[in-house]
């Protein structure tokens, strides 16, 4: 929600970026009507919102590492980089694997808030071709297809099927990813 406000403050017609552009005597850029930049904007916004939480998870894993490992490595003459590669990474690998597995399982799901509020889809239909994901598609169907998606109004049955499909593919993906992980290193697998 807040990310949407922030994006608006940055990208809006009077937003920070356009103000800066004006001051540099350049033409302002209408972000909310041009779909192309949104491919990048959404990635940046997602990173901005998600990096903190990811950092905390890995930080938690790293705090749990016994400092004696590092001391022993230092005595043996390992530099920082070697310590990272041969102590830190292996010891947080279980976290990395869990994160990847869960992310793979959710590859067909999107962060609804990100794709709906940040581009403000409900009034910037021009952006739909780039920012419409299954989640927003289904939601629009639920709203009664209040705005069009290409060919026509989204039908409820079709949306239900899309949502179900999303779940099935997610399940298949996570189970197969888990199988692969189990083949490579059984102790890292999720189940």
């Amino acid at each position: 929600m807040i990310v949407g406000y922030i994006a608006y403050a940055l990208l809006g017609a009077n937003g920070f970026i356009n103000t800066a552009l004006k001051e540099a005597a350049l033409d302002p850029f209408p972000f909310y009507t041009k779909p192309d930049p949104w491919r990048l904007i959404l990635i940046v916004a997602n990173l901005w919102g998600g990096v903190g939480f990811g950092t905390i998870i890995y930080l938690a894993g790293m705090i749990g590492i016994n400092p004696e490992f590092y001391e022993a490595a230092q005595l043996d003459g390992a530099n920082k980089f070697q310590q990272i590669v041969s102590i830190t990474l292996p010891l947080i690998s279980y976290l990395i694997v869990i994160q990847i597995l869960l992310a793979v399982g959710r590859i067909f799901f999107a962060n609804f808030g990100l794709f709906y509020f940040v581009p403000q889809v409900w009034r910037n239909g021009a952006l739909l071709p780039v920012v419409d994901v299954i989640d927003t598609f289904v939601f629009r169907a639920l709203q009664g297809g209040s705005f069009q998606a290409g060919a026509g109004v989204v039908k409820l049955g079709m949306a239900a099927a899309a949502g179900f499909y999303q779940s099935v593919v997610g399940l298949i993906l996570i189970v197969s990813a888990n199988l692969i992980v189990r083949k490579i290193s059984a102790e890292h697998s999720l189940f």
């Binding site: 289904v138 169907a141 639920l142 239900a160 949502g163 779940s167 099935v168 996570i174 189970v175």
Partner: peptide
């Protein structure tokens, strides 16, 4: 308990 994490009917059935 774990199953709903892996699989669900989607938004419309929930609604």
């Amino acid at each position: 308990v774990l199953f709903p994490v892996l699989f669900s009917g989607g938004l419309i059935p929930f609604y």
